[in-house]
């Protein structure tokens, strides 16, 4: 009996990974090109920006908040970094500047959300408009072209085989795993999201924790934005829009709970890959455009349903055996 429960438990713990593996297997059967190195690299490249943003979204959702400004912050910070690069020619300077911009937006988000205790939904929604205005104010609606070597942030291959976008996914994933699993700050994030009143009573400085989380989120968004612009080989502010919803989707498919306190970096990566593989295989198979949307929507619902159901089952078993 116990053994059975244990196996079930493992199954449930890795439910999203199982969905991903199942999709990969099915895709490999359906399309002979799917499992080629180039195609796998493509999938990873395509999900790179949204994955980086999803890590930030995951962290924020763990604290029980939400960041709707991720996409536009990516567009803004990425475009400003491009502008600075075109003006100065320094990759380091422009990359650093982009991150500072992201951190600044996070600082402002955090000020209103953590300090003044406004709902993050509203604040970051407003920040969407502010950040997009802040970049178009400068560009006057024009895009930035001929960005020279800035494109290496999105197009270079490291060590001759590893696309830099994939390197960024791995790097950001490792950073997020360390942050969530091995630091005190990470533990506080979960505590705050699980029950912020308990967190205060346990001696956690909730305001500070949330504030820092939003700053990190802003930096992640900026990095994602710079990768995006590098990949596009242009500075296009509007391209960032909409990424926040994709990031929420990947995060939720990856098993992060909207009520806060639950979620992992690896889960988010898997969630993002599930959506990436789905898009890829439908294109490889030439599924018609409108049908693609319907299938995508349903599969996301099914993935979340599977995840939620398995978790519900797990908890009922435990309660009963009390």
């Amino acid at each position: 009996m116990k053994q059975q429960i244990k196996i079930k438990g493992t199954l449930q713990k890795y439910s999203t990974i199982i969905i991903l593996l199942a999709m990969i297997m099915l895709s490999a059967i359906l399309s002979s090109t799917f499992l080629t190195t180039t195609n796998i690299m493509n999938v990873l490249k395509q999900v790179s920006v949204v994955t980086i943003l999803s890590f930030a979204q995951c962290m924020i959702i763990i604290t029980g908040e939400i960041d709707l400004s991720l996409g536009t912050v990516a567009g803004m910070a990425g475009s400003y970094a491009v502008i600075l690069y075109v003006a100065t020619g320094s990759l380091v300077l422009s990359f650093g500047f982009g991150m500072i911009l992201g951190a600044l937006v996070g600082l402002i988000n955090g000020l209103f959300i953590a300090y003044f205790k406004l709902p993050s939904f509203i604040v970051t929604l407003a920040m969407q408009s502010i950040t997009f205005g802040a970049i178009t104010l400068y560009t006057k609606g024009n895009n930035i072209y001929r960005i020279g070597d800035f494109k290496i942030f999105g197009q270079k291959e490291l060590f001759g085989f590893l696309p830099i976008t994939i390197f960024f996914i791995i790097l950001m994933c490792i950073i997020m795993i360390i942050l969530l699993r091995y630091t005190k700050f990470g533990r506080y994030l979960y505590a705050v999201g699980s029950n912020s009143e308990s967190a205060v009573a346990a001696g956690i400085q909730v305001t500070k924790v949330k504030w820092v989380a939003f700053i990190i989120s802003g930096i992640f968004a900026a990095i994602g934005g710079m990768v995006l612009m590098g990949r596009l080989n242009a500075g296009i502010p509007s391209e960032g829009q909409g990424y926040e919803t994709d990031a929420i989707m990947a995060t939720v498919v990856g098993g992060t709970s909207f009520s806060g306190g639950v979620g992992t970096a690896t889960g988010t990566l898997v969630g993002s890959l599930i959506i990436g593989v789905l898009n890829n295989i439908m294109n490889l198979l030439g599924v018609e455009a409108y049908t693609q949307r319907i299938i995508k929507g349903f599969l996301i619902i099914i993935a979340v349903l599977f995840d939620v159901r398995s978790k519900q089952k797990k908890s009922t078993i435990k309660i009963m055996s009390k």
Partner: peptide, 26 residues
């Protein structure tokens, strides 16, 4: 104002002792 209901027993126990420990890592 006590438990973190979605977290495990281990984290629920250690959370406050982390505050009095030095360093950023656990």
């Amino acid at each position: 104002e006590g438990i973190f209901s979605v977290r495990n027993v281990l984290e629920n126990i250690s959370i406050s002792s982390l505050r009095v420990k030095k360093g950023a890592f656990i």
